[in-house]
Amino acid sequence: MFEAIAFYLFAFLTISMFYIAVTTSQALYALSALAAGMIFISAFFFILGADFLGAVQIVVYSGAVMALYAFGMMFFDTTREIKEKQGNKAIVLGLSILSAILVGAIVAAPIVGNNIEALYPMVEGAGNTQEVGMVLFTKYLVPFEVAAVMLLVAMIAGIVLAGKKMDLSLTLMSEAEILMMKEEDKNKKALS
């Protein structure tokens, strides 16, 4: 009973938050709605008994990803209203057909998968975090290490891409220095 109430409440909240994130024309509203939706999604993980996944969802999405987006938005002009594409009839039709096929396939999927046996069944008498550790560090050790290397590569790529000219500060430079820097940039662009 309580599971049903919690499911419907959080389903309504998540859908409305993501709907706002997709339709609003203010970047700041979209960011806040997305962060709220991420936290509500972690509630489903807690209902489903995947405690560790829910905690990771809150830490990674609401903590890291949203902070990164908020940091990135400082670079862009977010006060400006976001322009939308003109509605294309063919795309809308194609998308609705695709969504309908998706709904049909997803509802039919458990019928096909009736005789599936668990490959790594849940361990009796162990908490979710313990189970996750037991499977992650035995069967999925290589993907885990590869994911770690991928995150390292992404971190270095982010630093290299976004960190250009970070050692210069426009507020600490005099007007003449800024003008000189702009001239240099123009010359560089003209050459290349």
């Binding site: 995947a50 996944l53 990771v56 990674v60 490959l119 499977v135 992650l136």
Partner: peptide
């Protein structure tokens, strides 16, 4: 289905999303 593979995949999806 009482299987932990789904949760493992969710972890890797989160890692890919972060990078």
């Amino acid at each position: 289905y009482g299987d932990l593979t789904g949760q493992m995949f969710a972890f890797f999806v989160i890692a890919i999303a972060a990078s």
